[in-house]
Design a protein around this nucleic acid. Structure first.
Lengths: 135, 135
DNA sequence: ATTGCTGCAAAACATTTGCACGTAC
DNA sequence: GTACGTGCAAATGTTTTGCAGCAAT
């Protein structure tokens, strides 16, 4: 029941958060790791995984699972419940909230007697800059 | 541009479709494979994967990706666009449609200039029979 | 007869873990 | 000083693939 496990401020953890930065796109652990190495950071891949995992648990980053089953991460601007609109080509992401939808979800669930529900909902599409790109 | 690739009617393919049956729950390729072996069917795991994949492509079965990145499959009753309400404990599934939500999705997307969008949305919860089960 | 399917085992992947060592506290 | 974090390599688990033989058309 301890909701604040002590997390140490290590060089690697800091670097990972910095690398996530405020880019508005989702990246996989592997991409992030590569990106960090490219910019001279020395970090182990396992460490990137471990940190992303703990950061996700503590709600500091957002996780999405792609259709291929790969987990992708992003530092979120908003710490409340929200969804994403992601560009299939460049990864550009827009966060949005959908109170009506939350409401809707709860209604559907209780209609069928389901309790303690949570939902996933993400939108993928082509952003203005890539609107003409083939699917 | 050929949207009807010739699929042969093999014993295995038929068996897989039969095994998927009309159960109202999602199963992974591995589970399905095990289930088939248990009931005496002789099928290779790779074949199960290959068939599920092609069946999913041709829209004959539904695919969902779990939080752990595992793909789970189900034969759908409804061949139009729909979503699922899945029990976290027993896998029991209810299909539902959400026209208002489709509408909503399109609106959000075009508001941000996104085109050619598709979305994912699934609800997970506890069905009436498992409402008291801990998360 | 063709050409696609199957089975098996090996390969490819992303992710996790064991363990000795380093380091934040 | 102690407990947690890190790095590496090995292990895990799922899905894919190469290839020789089998079967549907």
């Amino acid at each position: 029941m301890d909701s604040s496990p002590k997390q140490r401020t290590t060089r690697q953890r800091t670097a990972i958060l910095a690398a996530l930065g405020h880019e508005s796109d989702f990246r996989s652990a592997q991409q992030l790791h590569e990106q960090m190495r490219a910019s001279g950071e020395s970090v182990g891949l396992a460490t990137v995984y471990r940190n992303l995992q703990s950061l996700a648990e503590s709600g500091q980053v957002d996780v999405l699972v792609t259709d291929e089953g790969e987990s992708i991460y992003r530092q979120c601007e908003d710490d409340t419940h929200h969804h994403h609109l992601v560009c299939r080509v460049c990864g550009r992401t827009v966060e949005f909230q959908a109170p009506e939808m939350e409401e809707w979800t709860r209604r559907i669930a209780s209609q069928h007697g389901f309790a303690d529900v949570h939902h996933t909902m993400e939108i993928f599409g082509l952003c203005p800059d890539h609107a003409d790109q083939a699917s």
